[in-house]
Nucleic acid binder design. Structure first.
Lengths: 250, 250
DNA sequence: CGCACTTTTGAACAGAATCAAGTTTTGTGG
DNA sequence: CCACAAAACTTGATTCTGTTCAAAAGTGCG
């Protein structure tokens, strides 16, 4: 067994911290991530598959649109965004990714990434070489299933974003966004009521199809209504019900 | 070999036209569809996998949100739409599907469909039992690859829709929509310059995040500019360049 | 052939964008 | 560790795009 936190044995030739192994089997995210549903023997084989870590400083790219597909990535720690770009330079945030999320599946169709993925804070990722993943998932039906589930989950998530962008007003989009973050933090064992936004108002706006001024105004309005408390990037949800109602009604 | 158009042999006990076999290997869509990239031996095995057809009259559902995942479907002929629904009853078109498109991948993540899929004209679909597909794709690496490519393509398509909904104006959305249809018809051997819309203005509006009146107005404007000719559902693209420019600029 | 649905077009309205100015925060280098 | 510049945020006033409401005309299905 090996973990990031175990000191490197003095006798071993471990020179690169990035390559320190962290077994999936001992990872707290295993139930959210690629190995969900695998038994011990299977997990061991996945451990050997995922043998490379990648560290990114805030602002660094994991990949750019156009880069060839090498690997898929699982977020081990930190926070990322993916942006789609248009010829004319306009850019739109297509998603925010946190711990346990899988990245890079956009590249499978053409062999090249179709978006940019960037760290919004210092982050660590597990690199899953794609060709080995394909191979191993032929041998381990549970792994194959989980991979398919993960890709399908991304498709479903995208449908939700379409709904958001296509038929909600500014306040509804913001409520949906906050509740989504809240729920994802909760699923990871953090508070669902209090968290820090890792992105700027402009990035939220890009994701929600709104301008940054609108984001700012809606947050202020929610605060005045007593539904949330905002201070800079810190959010405290005071009336989750009210936010939910905003979505359910009409 | 067996095709839909061959008369059923009088001696055979073929009673259900829906079950008449049409081999993938003799299907004109094979290069667009699931068997793309397979050799003859592999194709033969996929033929045995896809042994059920399903006919839908215009307006009939292929599946509803909530239905359990049974199969994926390939559009053999006709035209379909998928709609996501919200608790409050609001509904949004998430995609239009034509010949060769694969449907149903939204259900893999949870085992239940997350959208409604409906025929917009009489349509025929190939039913691909999902558990057999999983199994066979473990045995045939090319099939596995193609399945992954298809799911990834759906993710990339969704990114495009997000871009459209999140950062384009009404006219740009409409131009993108028309050009996308045009290009997809062309890929299927039809005219890229002239085609019939299979959906109502309201459905286009729902897909593009606009109201039907806006769709009508934008089409009229395009027509006045001489960029297209619209008569009811019939569209003739006269200046594809102008439409492209509308997207590329700014 | 008629009724329901779809589409077009106009006029008034609303929500979000844009423009603008000022404030706060953050990150960097001295 | 502090000072400063750049980036991020807030708020107000104005503009504009697309929605809503309304009415009339066209289409097509049964």
């Amino acid at each position: 067994m090996n973990t990031t936190h175990a000191p490197a044995p003095a006798t071993a030739a471990v020179t690169d911290l990035n390559q320190l192994r962290v077994a999936c089997s001992s990872c707290s995210l295993r139930e959210l991530c690629l190995p969900a549903g695998l038994d011990a023997r299977e997990m061991e084989r996945v451990d050997r598959l995922v043998n490379q870590r990648r560290k990114l400083r805030r602002g660094e790219h994991l990949y750019h649109a156009g880069n060839p597909l090498v690997a898929l990535y699982a977020v081990r720690s930190g926070f990322m965004k993916s942006c789609v770009l248009q010829e004319d330079g306009r850019e739109q945030v297509a998603g925010f990714h946190m711990t346990g999320d899988m990245l890079g599946m956009d590249a499978i169709s053409s062999g090249r990434h179709m978006c940019d993925t960037v760290a919004l804070e210092d982050s660590e990722l597990c690199e899953i070489p794609y060709s080995y993943l394909e191979q191993l998932s032929r041998e381990l039906p549970s792994l194959q299933q989980q991979l398919h589930r993960i890709m399908s989950r991304e498709i479903v998530r995208d449908y939700g974003v379409m709904m958001l962008l296509g038929s909600m007003k500014a306040e509804e989009r913001m409520a949906a966004f906050l509740l989504n973050l809240s729920q994802r933090f909760a699923a990871r064992g953090y508070s669902s009521a209090e968290f820090n936004l890792r992105m700027t108002r402009e990035e939220i706006g890009s994701y929600l199809g709104l301008k940054l001024e609108t984001i700012s105004r809606v947050l202020s309005r929610f605060q005045q209504d007593g539904w949330i408390a905002v201070r800079h990037k810190h959010i405290r949800i005071r009336k989750a019900d009210a936010l939910h109602q905003l979505l359910g009604q009409r």
